[in-house]
Simulated assay, not measured.
Amino acid sequence: MPDLLDPRVDFVFKRIFGSEENKDVLLAFLNRTFAESGEPPLTEIVLLNPYTDKDAPLDKQSIFDIWAKTDEGKLINVEMQLFNKYDIEKRTLFYWSKRYSSQLQEGQAYTELKKCVTINILDYSFIKNDRYHNVFHLREDHTGIELSDDIEVHFLELSKLNDRSVPVEGGLVNWLLFLKGADKSKWEVLQMNEPTLKKAMDTLEFLSQDREARRRYEERQKYLHDEASMIEWATRKGRVEGKAEGEKKKAEEIARNMLAMGMEVSVISKVSGLTEAEVQSLQTNP
């Protein structure tokens, strides 16, 4: 049997968790995530952008986040991040705010706004503690009084898991070990702890044997690694060259290369040393 595809690659992740036929897999994963923050289980979800075979890994129009809605109207966004593109906290708040504000149509009252939850699954460490699951809300500093329950942000950091140990009971960590790529010899225990994981595993095995899925996977992996290499190269080059006076043209060249790769303006600004306005100007006047 061919090597298994990496379930962390975004389009594979969305095929496993964000397709209509695997909606029960997503529901089980979400309930384990929310259980760790003391929330009641969900009974039903609606996928707002389900995976289809028309989703192309290199198509910039494809959205590999998972957007779902509960039967009470709560909005949930799940995103997998393989590489640190920096400013993840600002990026999270920016897209959270867009989802939150987009709920209101003209003339509607603010009371129509429903809670929005963002779940970031990171393949790198971000929060400065040892917890693999951190949850953020909007609360008063001294008393802990909650201002509003409408914002909730989860960070699940796979890098903080010890992949050599397998839990002896059900819970979120079983799902995260599967995503991290736990050795297949441990799958039996993981799915005994979390029975719905078997369907996720079966889907991954099916995709791994499908020639077209593997071709698309390899294309996506190449793109992601090229993007990561470009960030690393541009960061090093930008830091060295940015020290010299009169290097703006080189910074603009770096920015143009990164724009051509479809990278975000905020990341390009940080790497190149240009302001976001200068980067946007290059975008409109290449």
Rank of each mutant, 00 (worst) to 15 (best):
E89F: 04
E89A: 10
E89I: 11
K90G: 07
R91G: 04
R91Q: 08
R91Y: 08
T92M: 07
L93W: 00
Y95R: 05
Y95F: 08
Y95T: 14
K98A: 07
K98E: 11
K98I: 09
S101Q: 06
S101E: 04
Q103M: 01
L104A: 08
G107M: 09
A109T: 12
Y110R: 07
Y110D: 12
Y110E: 14
T111Y: 03
L113H: 05
L113M: 07
C116P: 00
V117N: 01
V117Q: 02
T118P: 00
I121F: 01
I121V: 13
I121C: 00
D123M: 03
D123A: 12
D123R: 13
Y124F: 15
Y124R: 01
S125V: 11
S125P: 10
F126E: 09
I127C: 08
I127H: 02
I127E: 13
I127M: 14
N129C: 10
N129E: 06
D130A: 11
D130M: 06
R131G: 10
Y132Q: 10
H133F: 06
V135N: 12
F136S: 10
L138I: 14
L138P: 01
R139E: 15
R139M: 13
E140G: 00
H142V: 11
G144A: 13
G144V: 14
G144N: 15
I145H: 14
I145N: 13
L147K: 11
S148E: 01
D149G: 10
D150V: 03
I151D: 02
E152M: 14
H154D: 11
L156H: 11
E157T: 08
E157Q: 12
S159I: 04
K160E: 12
K160Y: 09
K160N: 13
L161A: 11
N162P: 06
R164E: 14
R164A: 07
S165M: 05
P167K: 05
P167W: 03
P167Q: 07
V168Y: 00
V168P: 00
E169G: 07
G170P: 01
L172Q: 07
V173Y: 00
V173C: 00
V173T: 09
N174I: 03
L176Q: 04
L177E: 05
L177V: 10
F178M: 02
L179Y: 06
L179D: 01
K180P: 03
K180N: 12
K180Q: 10
A182H: 10
S185E: 15
K186C: 08
K186L: 08
V189R: 14
L190T: 11
L190V: 09
L190I: 05
P195A: 02
T196V: 15
K198A: 12
K198T: 12
K199M: 13
M201T: 09
D202F: 04
D202C: 10
T203Y: 07
L204H: 09
E205C: 05
F206D: 15
F206M: 14
L207D: 02
D210G: 06
D210K: 12
R211G: 07
R211F: 06
E212T: 09
E212F: 03
E212P: 00
A213N: 06
R214P: 06
R216H: 06
R216T: 00
Y217N: 05
Y217T: 02
E219W: 06
R220L: 02
Q221K: 07
Q221D: 01
Q221V: 13
Q221M: 08
L224W: 01
L224K: 13
H225I: 09
H225S: 10
H225W: 09
A228W: 03
M230D: 06
M230T: 14
